[in-house]
């Protein structure tokens, strides 16, 4: 073994190495849906099933993306950050599938019905709003866009990642007829993830702080 390849052990490397696996795992639900579509095992109402599955995975991916930061703080595995953009883009991809299922399969481009549906039915409007809010996030996800916006503005824009899942859970909750247990679980998880951001440790001077201004 050449001596030059010796390096200090870098646990963060694992996150880079595992990234392709995470990528494949995120494709899993879509692959499963395609498989079920091809084998005709989506049940009596395939469109309904595809809508449900893509919607649920949008929510799950949004929550998993929000999990990265608290998990880093908790474990010190800072390499996790390498996965965050990819996870966020998967959330967006499932949202696109969900939206297209609605427009193409469910409504088949019946724009008058679609527009009426969005305007008249709050749960559709909320879901649609969440989808629209995801667009700028996906659009500004590249390194070039981060540079162009500047870190501060980019971060401010990407705070929408907190609002979108809130709208997503509301969109889910609003269409449930009586059994609220599923949206309630999503709400609970989302609350924990959002609450974890409230008490982020602030850099604070140790010991008694001297008066800021001279008397």
């Amino acid at each position: 073994m050449p001596v030059g390849s010796e390096r200090a052990p870098d646990p963060q490397r694992w996150f880079r190495r595992l990234k392709p696996l995470v990528f494949l795992a995120c494709l899993g639900p879509a692959a499963m849906l395609s498989y079920r579509a091809m084998t005709g095992t989506l049940g009596a109402e395939p469109i309904d099933e595809i809508t449900g599955v893509t919607g649920q995975w949008t929510l799950r991916m949004l929550l998993i993306t929000l999990l990265i930061t608290p998990l880093r703080q908790l474990t010190g595995w800072h390499g996790l950050i390498r996965w965050r953009r990819m996870l966020g883009l998967f959330a967006f991809s499932y949202a696109v599938l969900h939206f297209l299922t609605y427009v193409v399969l469910d409504q088949f481009f019946a724009w008058n019905f679609i527009i009426e549906d969005i305007i008249e039915h709050p749960y559709v409007l909320v879901g649609f709003t969440a989808f629209i809010l995801l667009l700028p996030l996906a659009f500004t996800s590249t390194d070039a866009m981060v540079r162009r916006l500047g870190g501060r503005r980019w971060r401010r824009l990407h705070r929408l990642a907190y609002l979108v899942p809130v709208l997503g859970v509301l969109h889910f909750w609003w269409q449930v007829k009586s059994d609220i247990s599923e949206p309630a679980v999503y709400s609970l998880l989302l609350s924990v993830l959002l609450a974890s951001r409230l008490r982020r440790p602030q850099p604070r001077a140790t010991g008694a702080a001297p008066p800021a201004t001279p008397g």
Binding site: I47, F113, E116, H121
Partner: peptide, 9 residues
């Protein structure tokens, strides 16, 4: 109140 009844599948 939450969805249309005009059409059905």
């Amino acid at each position: 109140p939450r969805w249309s009844q005009a059409r059905e599948r």
